[in-house]
Write a protein that binds this DNA or RNA. Sequence first.
DNA 1: CCGCGTCAAGTTCAT
DNA 2: ATGAACTTGACGCGG
Length: 298
Amino acid sequence: MSIGYACLTIGVEDTSIKSCIMRNATDTRLKELIAWNLNSLNNILDYNIANNIRLFRISSDLIPFGSSPVNRVPWWEIFEQEFQRLGDKIRAHDIRVSMHPGQYTVLNSLNEDVVKRAIEDLRYHAKVLSCLKVGYECKIILHVGGVYGDKEQALNRFIFNYQGLEQELKHRIVIENDDKCYNIQEVLMLGLSQDIPVVYDNLHHIANPTIDFMSHKHWIDQCKQTWKKKDGIQKMHYSQQDKDKKLGSHSNSINLDEFIAFFHELNREDIDIMLEVKDKNLSALNCILYLKDSKPCE
DNA sequence: CCGCGTCAAGTTCAT
DNA sequence: ATGAACTTGACGCGG
């Protein structure tokens, strides 16, 4: 079981991921940014290794405009060596990396161009992972998308578009319940029918619950069956509500008592937990240290 | 140099 | 019909 964090590492020098606005995205500028970001990723990995953090989400900004025609830099060739070294490090230390396209990547859109760009974006994310030569347990997390007033049709479009994807992408993609449109029951049905692993997000489930009163544990255990051997152990997202903000907003840091209560209720060791929290590695460290201390021997 | 408006992208919901 | 929120930091311009 690993606990990890997403994208940014706080308080560690030279780990920032930089980007630029589109009109400044010249080949020269992009190459500079990519070189900087790959160096940052290397420093992040060193920090994670030193602190025994074995789960990490790589920022989609690693390659700025990575899936846009604006970026014409053949980064996978220019930086082949750097990717090789980063990948060696990831594999040598058994780190599980993932990526998570944002809300603008919508595979089931009514607009064909949006779907095309979504596929390009998935290809970009998969290309980063394949450049690192990491196994298929390193995933790309995707939301199902919009509803457009007809959920059944929207789900059918997702299925149709998903089935048309190349195998390389299907090996990477996992789907997650979101806070508005598709609850865990719907995502699970979809995952079971299409053989797509399902990531359970506890806070999204609070914001967008199923009609029954099933526990977190119930759904997490249900999701387990969607994770096959080649997918690695089951993954989930864990976050806590920021009490001062609206439903679904991530908290600044992880409240340990609350996390521990959740973890005990879950009573599972065969699961990786990605924390979604603003203080990133700091809370991850907290949780990892607590669990380490509470184990009898290791 | 500091501060604040803006930033590729899509969908939903509030006004 | 239009615009904000989502989630969020950081880019980069204007003063």
